[in-house]
Amino acid sequence: MKWMEMEREKEMKGSRFAGHGPFGFMGEDGKKRIRGAAGLCRGYLLEGVLLFPALLVCIPFLILITGSVMGRGELGEYLRPVLNGTGGYISWSLMPDYPTFGNYGRLLLETPQFFVLFWNSMGMVTAILLGQFVIGVPAAWAFAVYEFPLCRWLLTVYIVLMLLPFQVTMLSSYLVLDGMGLMNTPGAVVLPAVFSTFPVFVCYGGFLQIPKEMLDSARMDGAGEWLIFLKFGIPLGKGGILSAMVLGFLEYWNLMEQPLAFLEDKALWPLSLYLPEIGWQQAGYAFAASVITLVPAVFVFLAGQDYLEKGIVYAGMKG
């Protein structure tokens, strides 16, 4: 509840998410106050210190991108110790001598398998997110808006299920999927994910922000419950819904445990399981494939960062 109030408070002030905390030299009116030169310097220094590990965090991205535009010869040179099992250590250059898109070309044009798996991944993620939208969003609405018997108790059940790791429910999922004849079909991965309680929880956080009075006055005007959900719930709870989608995309784009356990046929696998199958001999492929896998995730990340942050906060909120 506290988080919700604070969220509202912030919205009123119109300030950016956790922009300037109440602690430190930038108080509530920090922007207006003229700070001394010493304070300014200290600010820059702190920013620099904070920036350094943040940049370190991004080094793996650089390695992948440079590797993906290196030619076979150059990669072979850098990775020779691993390839031949000879002594010495691998080396790297952040500026490829002869940048080329050859890896991408070969991967995209000459490896049909890659295409199949890419679209497998896309298909699964889309199906899961659509399903979660149809199933999870109304459930979140029910928890946020209505009072019904066992409401609190059910919410606790949903929280517990959200927190249970996949491995604990692995056997039970297998039993039911096997019973329904879904093993080794995309449904084995998609269906259980559709009924995941995580998006319910995130959307619930979003719906709690809607003032109850607004819904009551709509009821007074004679609007039915469905109409209220469609006309008020979805547009006003958009933040929560999109947050759930962004978090969901990043989660399901990396699907691993489920397809590994429930899909035997490699032609059904998502991209996330294909990459590790590429050996060192084809390092160029591996880098290009990594970058292509990265692109949708980074795109969603950049487009939805605000929602991502909101979603993280909503998931930690309790009514």
Binding site: V57, C58, P60, F61, I63, L64, L250, W253, N254, M256, L271, S272, L273, Y274, L275, P276, A286, F287, S290, V291, T293, L294, A297, V298, V300, F301, Q305, L308, E309
Partner: peptide, 14 residues
Amino acid sequence: LFPMAMPTAAVAVV
């Protein structure tokens, strides 16, 4: 936050 967007498989390569 950026590493959240890094696909697991790509992490493994690096």
